[in-house]
Design a protein around this nucleic acid. Sequence first.
DNA 1: CGCCGCATTGACGTTCGTCAAGTCTAGTGG
DNA 2: CCACTAGACTTGACGAACGTCAATGCGGCG
Lengths: 239, 239
Amino acid sequence: MNPQTIKVACSNCNLRELCMPIGLNAQDLDLIDRMVAVRRKVKRGATLFRNGETFTSLYAIRTGFFKTSIASEDGRDQVTGFQMAGEVIGLDGIVNDQHTCDAVALEDAEVCVMPFDEIESLSREVNALQRHMHKIMSREIVREHGVMLLLGSMRAEERLAAFLLNLVQRLHARGFSQSELILRMTREEIGSYLGLKLETVSRTFSKFVEDGTVEVKQRHVRIVDTEALRRIVNPQTSL
Amino acid sequence: MNPQTIKVACSNCNLRELCMPIGLNAQDLDLIDRMVAVRRKVKRGATLFRNGETFTSLYAIRTGFFKTSIASEDGRDQVTGFQMAGEVIGLDGIVNDQHTCDAVALEDAEVCVMPFDEIESLSREVNALQRHMHKIMSREIVREHGVMLLLGSMRAEERLAAFLLNLVQRLHARGFSQSELILRMTREEIGSYLGLKLETVSRTFSKFVEDGTVEVKQRHVRIVDTEALRRIVNPQTSL
DNA sequence: CGCCGCATTGACGTTCGTCAAGTCTAGTGG
DNA sequence: CCACTAGACTTGACGAACGTCAATGCGGCG
């Protein structure tokens, strides 16, 4: 067997409720186990897939942290998202049978490989899986609407506050702290995602530190005043 | 019968190739005809659905022009897209069974109502429909990636040029002119979509007119030099 | 004919980008 | 163990792009 691939089972995966439909019976779960037959390890800095590559599978992140980004023809690039354990990446590839963005691991990672044609045939049999797929794609569309709002109408402080709150909320849902987090990405990658230059990201962090809202030591961030961050994101609401 | 609802058939709709899968046999087409049993008229300025409303159906636009927008808690709003005949709206509602944006008709419109539970059950039988649904959702995700690139890294002229090229390309695919178009939205709505203020949109139009790239008379736009617009969007490529 | 919403244009201010210098940290090798 | 280095980060000075505010123009509709 390829050393990069290992047999696994969703049925005893503790991330099941994050990436798989809930309330499956034993028989359906067994079918899904067989579909997700392979895992793949991705080293920090390596790509899981690249723009232009043929699309075959979706990937559920088991461990690790990814960024996805697209490049315009003249070389600018835009980080379109940061993904963590339990999230699914690769949905962009469905429409034209090839990926339209790059997925890069920001720390050593492991993903479950889910061949898309098997997902399609299985979701014709298992209603919960079909529904789940639709929800995952719809959730991504809604998430991107939120990013459009952020990029289209927020100022630097608001963008960074929203970013931190979103990250810590997702980490908390995975059992991590509500107030402390380690950034897996550089200031430049944060800036790309938020439509800011890295210097502006850095300055805005410094501003938050001055205000006593967060403590920052390189990539270690402690949120001291969550409410203050919320007020930054939603100025009017605080009145 | 409700006067707002009319019986129709996909099988003789000239937009079929835009909103439905291609290569269906007569039997499958008949099943889909029965699913899309109802049309609905939406007057200019009226909403097709609103943020918070229960999600029941997707809508294929038969005639007319829509915008979708989301509002942040403190009142800012962001136009997330403009949709024209043959495009499908409502995908945002799937994930939580309620709509998360508003869809407003920018001119008198007519949509085909496609109840989502019927789409789901039918796409278990008709593979082409299942595949089509997946592609539509993936296409929307990829489109939004492009908007993120625009909002995150482009300057005002680049944004407006990209916007005009995208609009005219979609109109051309529907049999309209490659060079002339009528904007169905205000400068403010364009600005909201592009992350600019309406004055900046107006000034940028004026700049294009000065340069002889486009002619603008209110909402009537004629693109004089398509290549110039392309060069604005992709500066490096022109070298 | 006059009103109203939309659009244009100008003057000015703010935010963020650019450029540059300097600091910190982790990793490497002597 | 410590010096060295490369990459990431911080900070400052300055300028450009875009936002804000305000006045005016235009066109459609009652």
